[in-house]
Design a protein around this nucleic acid. Structure first.
Length: 889
RNA sequence: GCAGAAGUGGUGGAAUUGGUAGACACGCUGGACUUAAAAUCCAGUGGACAGUAAUGUCCGUGCGGGUUCAAGUCCCGCCUUCUGUACCA
């Protein structure tokens, strides 16, 4: 019998589906293991061979854990709300639900043919109302919570109301808006219900506020900071401008410190932790107030990480957008300042970033009073100070900060030196360790550390400042002006948001005529005719009925992409529960993801928000652990190996790779499917594919072949180097694809794909098959294995087990090859050797393992057969060559 | 600029703890089978030099130093590539 991958792979995929082989059981006595892939967005383009890399790795691990006796949860689903489907809807008028459904079908077919052991009975889709019901539910929980800094956790809003009722704001230590007012218990109790709601909104973990947002006119929506790359939208590369809008926000900043601390408790890659640490951006320093000379009551607050250098302040710089700028600018300087402010406003964010070197600014004519010396210091504006960070103002210490130094130099401002023994003639001195302060009154002679302590003490003593820890992390804007996302369970009464009672969820996305914003600039849901809430019937009703008494308008924004992906890992534990987001017994058993595999591009988006929601859910007692994923691995990218033909410049002559030396040529991408394993181009195929070269002259190598030159690039359609897993599965089979993807190299590294290499693993599978068959006959012996055969088996068990535990899947594939090569040489056909070998191989190449396992007479799937146990005694040698070394050789 | 990762044959990579560098594959070369090709199988394959040959000698893990009986691996200094991030006060 011949190895026929097409037949056996189909057969076993059907068997697994029919027998629900990979269904995770809620068998609470068994040890559990939860393996999860990052939520895929089902794009219209389908999968290329780079996408399944992580899925294959996680699948191997999941199957391995089943062999090891674990109850394995290995689910899959779709992050099915998102921009591309909506953009497509805008262009074609097709409902995004329809295209999403079609894309999911393609995705599912592609995933199925690779033989993954997913428990599809638990599939979730974020765009499914049964699922987003719980996304809306969590939103309501966030709305009904505040952050108690004294307890360092989120609490129900009721506990805050109690505090207000008994003591007012006295003793309340909460994460809240900046401009909250203080009041007594009596005040509170005399406030109108509306006023009380307005105040509470300033404390809730999700809240409405007028925020400066990143507005993308081309996409017609706001974008989160992590959705903007180099000042343009990540998707589409459209320009982004700042704009003030009323938006829902999430008070993630309340969790900044805990998000930072939690990183120490989880086994995630260091680069990923570093980028989260960076994004949170903790810095320790002090707030200092500077009075403005001649403007009674006006002060400039600055945050500084170097309060020890305060005696080196020789000017102040405000961001051009700073609110004080128009107030304090003198008549003399007005024209200059206004011109500068206007010029910076015009410069796009992108220009500002691209052009870091140019120093610009303007003097306001006003002066601030140095809080210690009482000296007058000039107040400047400059665009190197960002309005969005800190207070939008800095105390400039040119001798200790390079940007201040450059600014001072450029405008001829004095640079007083406050560092003992430091040379500041060329550049600023910023070495904290070597700092000794001088020319600084009470700080003279102190080191950085001592001076910090002392100056903060003085600032607090004199009431002009205080020590502070600042975070770069901003509260996350949670509203999107989009159609294809979760609707908010919110209606408006007198302009104040009201939560719909959770028992009436889900609030389903309404039908609209058009998916674009309305003509008067409201979000797409503004096009819906039936989008109002009746508080008596608790139903969504026609807009015509809005009377602001029993029928109210519903929220027009929808939630952002990360809403649905921030708790999906918990929902998988109990995905069909319609009473609760998940049962307590289920979450207590499955607890958290044990192994999470996905790309590093989610470092500061999904992975930060999901950790935030998990901590919130933990605080409120819904989940038992405050980190959702114990271990995380970032799989590397699979790159394409592009093929080029070279055309002689200005002529219609195309040269083979060996003929281009010394010639002026232009490289042209050739489709990789037209190139064979020896880099030879199918010239006729190429001519058909690019008819403009039909009459071109092809200069071949001396042996008559035409060779392309190759280069490793990102896999993309435009580079014609995309390889489709469908083709690979058809020609070589899923087992070969799985083995080859692992064989390419270490999981976490990026590596180039070259289809020619797959013949190696394919012939390995054929050799494995041949161990069982002699000609057409199954030839298996029940005889005693020899010493050598046992040695081969046991060293393979040892190595493969170590490899899987270390996620070193590439090396176990070579180990299999060595084992099969050795057993072939030994002419081994012993059941006692081949059966355990099949179990070893089955996580990697499950179809062939199942097929051979059943031909050995087993009626049950191999998937839960115990993993073979390594025995040291088989590796002991009877004779051994000892290498002897002289001088290390 | 900052942070992280990586530099090993023609190519992907292996060497998990400092102990025979290049496992396993791809490709290439030669051979068998075939009218021929594909497929399959067998042998060889880091470089240089010497020898008819078996074989031997030397050089070799980005570069320059160092530690050690012994370094791809450890230490110091540089170079290059990739990835992330950036006027963050």
């Amino acid at each position: 019998m011949q190895y026929n991958h097409r037949e056996i792979e189909k057969k076993w995929q059907k068997y697994w589906a029919d027998h629900h082989t990979f269904r995770a059981k809620d068998d609470f006595d068994k040890p559990k293991y939860y393996v999860l892939d990052m939520f895929p967005y089902p794009s219209g383009a389908g999968l290329h061979v780079g996408h399944p890399l992580g899925y294959i790795a996680s699948d191997i691990y999941a199957r391995y854990k089943r062999h090891k006796g674990f109850n394995v949860l290995h689910p899959q689903g779709y992050d099915s709300f998102g921009l591309p489907a909506e953009q497509y809807a805008i262009q074609t008028g097709q409902h995004p639900a329809k295209t999403t459904e079609a894309n999911i079908k393609t995705y599912r077919r592609q995933l199925d043919q690779i033989g993954f052991s997913f428990d599809w009975s638990r599939e979730v889709r974020t765009s499914n109302p049964e699922y987003y019901k719980w996304t809306q539910w969590i939103f309501i929980q966030l709305f009904n919570s505040w952050y108690n800094k004294d307890m360092d956790k989120a609490e129900a809003i009721d506990t805050l109301i109690q505090k207000f009722e008994t003591n007012g704001t006295q003793g309340v230590n909460a994460a809240c808006d900046d401009e909250v007012i203080d009041f007594s218990a009596d005040d509170w109790n005399s406030f109108s219900a509306e006023k009380q709601q307005e105040i509470l909104l300033q404390y809730r973990l999700t809240f409405l506020s007028d925020t400066e947002v990143n507005w993308c006119p081309a996409l017609g929506t706001v974008l989160a900071n992590d959705e903007i790359v180099n000042g343009v939208s990540e998707r589409g590369g459209h320009p982004v401008v700042r704009k003030k809008m009323t938006q829902w926000s999430m008070r993630i900043s309340a969790y900044a410190q805990r998000l930072l601390d939690g990183l120490n408790t989880i086994d995630w890659p260091q680069p990923l932790k570093d980028s989260q640490t960076n994004w949170i951006g903790r810095s320790q320093g002090a707030m200092v107030s500077f009075q403005v000379d001649g403007h009674e009551g006006e002060k400039i607050d600055v945050f500084t990480t170097r309060p020890d250098t305060i005696f080196g302040v020789s000017f102040m710089t405000l961001a051009p957008e700073h609110e004080l700028v128009p107030k304090i600018t003198t008549a003399n300087q007005k024209a200059t300042v206004e011109a500068y402010v206007e010029a910076t406003a015009k410069r796009s964010e992108r220009d500002r970033m691209a052009d870091v070197k140019t120093i610009s600014g303007a003097f306001t004519g006003a002066y601030a009073i140095h809080p210690f010396t009482g000296d007058k210091v000039e107040i400047w504006i400059g665009d190197y100070v960002l309005a969005s960070y800190g207070t939008g103002a800095v105390m400039a210490v040119p001798c200790g900060d390079q940007r201040d130094y450059d600014f001072a130099n450029h405008f001829g401002i004095a640079i007083p030196n406050i560092f003992e023994g430091a040379d500041i003639s060329e550049e600023a001195f910023a070495d904290k360790e070597k700092t000794i302060i001088t020319n600084s009154d009470f700080l003279n002679g102190l080191s950085y550390k001592k001076a910090m302590k002392r100056v903060i003490y003085e600032l607090e003593e004199r009431g002009i400042g205080y020590g502070k820890i600042n975070y770069r992390l901003r509260d996350a804007v949670f509203s999107r002006q989009r159609y294809w996302g979760e609707p908010f369970p919110v209606y408006y009464k007198n302009g104040l948001p009201q939560m719909i009672n959770a028992v009436h969820l889900p609030i389903e996305l309404p039908e609209v005529e058009k998916y674009l914003p309305t003509e008067d600039g409201r979000p797409p849901l503004g096009n819906a005719d039936v989008w109002a809430w009746n508080v008596e019937t608790n139903k969504v009703v026609s807009n015509n009925l809005i009377d602001h008494k029993t029928v109210f308008p519903l929220e027009l924004n929808t939630m952002p992409g990360w809403a649905g992906s921030s708790q999906y890992f918990n929902r998988y534990m109990d995905p069909r529960n319609s009473e609760e987001i998940f049962g307590k017994d289920k979450i207590d058993y499955w607890k958290q993801v044990d192994l999470y595999i996905g790309g590093s591009e989610h470092a500061t988006g999904h992975l930060l928000y999901a950790r935030f929601w998990q901590k919130f859910m933990f605080d409120r007692g819904f989940v038992p652990v405050d980190e959702f994923a114990k271990k995380l691995i970032n799989q590397g990218m699979i790159l394409g190996t592009s093929a080029f033909v070279c055309r002689l410049e200005g002529e219609n002559t195309i040269l083979s790779a060996g003929k281009i030396e010394g010639q002026k040529v232009q490289p042209i991408h050739a489709d990789v499917s037209l190139v064979n394993a020896s880099d030879e181009l199918d010239i006729e195929g190429f001519k058909q594919w690019r008819p403009e070269f039909e009459n071109a002259e092809f200069i071949t190598e001396d042996d008559g072949t035409f060779k392309v030159s190759r280069e490793v690039e990102k896999m993309s359609k435009s580079k014609y180097n995309v390889v489709n897993p469908d083709d690979i599965c058809d020609e070589y089979g899923a087992d070969a694809l799985r083995l080859f993807e692992m064989f390419l190299g270490p999981l976490e590294q990026s590596k180039p794909w070259k289809t020619s290499g797959i013949s190696g693993v394919y012939s390995f599978l054929k050799k494995l098959w041949k161990l069982f068959y002699s000609g057409d006959e199954l030839a298996i012996s029940d005889g005693e294995p020899t010493k050598d055969e046992l040695k081969t088996l046991h060293k393979t068990i040892k190595k493969v087990e170590e490899d899987i535990e270390n996620f070193s899947f590439n090396t176990s594939v070579s180990t299999f090859m060595i084992a099969v090569n050795e057993l072939t040489a030994q002419k081994c056909n012993k059941r006692e050797i081949l059966e355990p070998l099949l179990v070893l191989i089955s996580p990697y190449a499950p179809h062939i393992a199942e097929e051979l396992w059943s031909t050995l007479g087993h009626n049950e799937s191999i998937s839960t057969v115990a993993f073979p146990v390594f025995e040291q005694k088989h590796l002991v040698e009877s004779t051994k060559n000892y290498p002897i070394s002289f001088n290390g050789k």
